[in-house]
Design a binder for these strands. Structure first.
Lengths: 225, 225
DNA sequence: CAGTGGTCTAGACCACGCA
DNA sequence: GCGTGGTCTAGACCACTGG
């Protein structure tokens, strides 16, 4: 246990226990230096870590204070479908339904590859996927058939770093979607819309449709970081 | 711009641009010290920040390497319904439907307060809420009527720090739910199940049901932290 | 304007893990 | 072994901001 970790944990414990309530001023850095017999840099690292985690707020001249709780964000596990299905003990497969180049796509500065397909669990439809891949941002995609490998898997391995935005909502499968997913029409489905950028330019946009009874998303909030 | 921020940004830029691909070894700390003319502590802080953000991996003896991308997590904005509705220009209200003490609740070590109610947007149903509050963890809740204030709002102000787990799925409103939400039966809804703990003990468990066409969740992934 | 946190330095010792 | 990152020290100067 490092000194930094000890300082952090002992402050955490006082916050979790309620001994130090939101708004409470925690000891000044120089007081912690004296209490732990360590250097100020070590205290500062511990407090920075707590601040990053959102547990405390630091204000010049005033000191550091227990933050007011805000459970307004959580880490969402965005599923890798192959792993999800393997974890359930199922057999994952990808089935390509459509592949073509679209020359004009809204919000895309260049032509895009349009890929439609189905993720299957042990032979049964699991999720419907409709995807666009910018050929400007990912020229190599033009050479891929995506017949055997799902485009998401391929992209993870061929596009360096991206940012992404997900929109999650409930919707009803229309007639065509229900047929492909082997559902009654109007069955409740989870719709995941994800757009991915790299250096501000769109890389891919995908819509995944999951039957509501076959899949759910998990998001965790932990004040540690 | 601090030295630390400059180091971090210049490394980020090389990663985002693709100049340094996943697996690439970035300069050793002592090389960065020489390149930037700063101390090793400053370089180390910059690299620690990149490591926390998941952009690089640091290995003793070997060096630091560009990490392989994993868009497998994103930050989910968990909505404060009052704010969501205010941001849309609507008028938020909470309507209490039921409040009673349940002596035995699964997974709760003590009796719990059961609160059912409706979140309203400009008078129209927006979300159905069914909540349990542990009276062992939050004894003060017993003195609250929750007639005027939604329990989530009250809890944020009165319970110290928590961890939380959310489950998100699509489901169909049953007859009673559809009636309360003013929907046709079997309308697709987004179901948010959240359990909150403090020191390992459950504090509250809530189920919120949103008509699919009235609400969606947003989750962002940015490699920065 | 005084005291806080923010940032930085030039060292040091250690533990780990590859050769 | 030996070089790397992990941690720490005992200072220092600065910028901000609350009283």
């Amino acid at each position: 246990m490092t000194v930094e970790a000890r300082i952090r944990q002992e402050i955490e414990a006082r916050i979790y226990s309620g001994e130090w309530k939101p708004g409470h001023r925690i000891p000044f850095e120089h007081e912690l230096v004296a209490a732990y017999g360590c250097s100020r840099a070590t205290v500062s690292k511990a407090l920075s870590s707590l601040s990053n985690a959102g547990l405390i707020e630091r204000r010049r001249k005033a000191g550091s204070f227990v933050a007011h709780p805000q459970v307004h964000s959580a880490v969402l596990e965005v599923p890798d479908l192959a792993q999800v299905i393997a974890a359930r003990g199922g057999d994952y497969r990808w089935s390509l339904m459509n592949r073509r180049v679209e020359t004009v796509v809204a919000d895309f500065p260049s032509p895009a590859l349009r890929i439609d397909g189905l993720h299957l669990e042990s032979g049964a439809p699991f999720a419907l996927e409709q995807r666009l891949i910018s050929l400007g941002a990912v020229p190599g995609a033009a050479d891929e058939s995506f017949a055997a490998e799902a485009p998401g898997t391929w992209l993870l391995q061929h596009v360096p770093w991206t940012s992404a935005r997900h929109r999650i909502r409930a919707t009803e499968a229309d007639r065509a979607e229900a047929r492909m997913l082997d559902l009654r029409p109007r069955t409740a489905c989870l719709e995941l819309l994800r757009t991915t950028w790299r250096n501000g330019a769109p890389v891919t946009r995908v819509r995944q449709l999951f039957p509501g009874d076959r899949f759910d998303l998990i998001a965790e909030f932990k004040p540690d970081a």
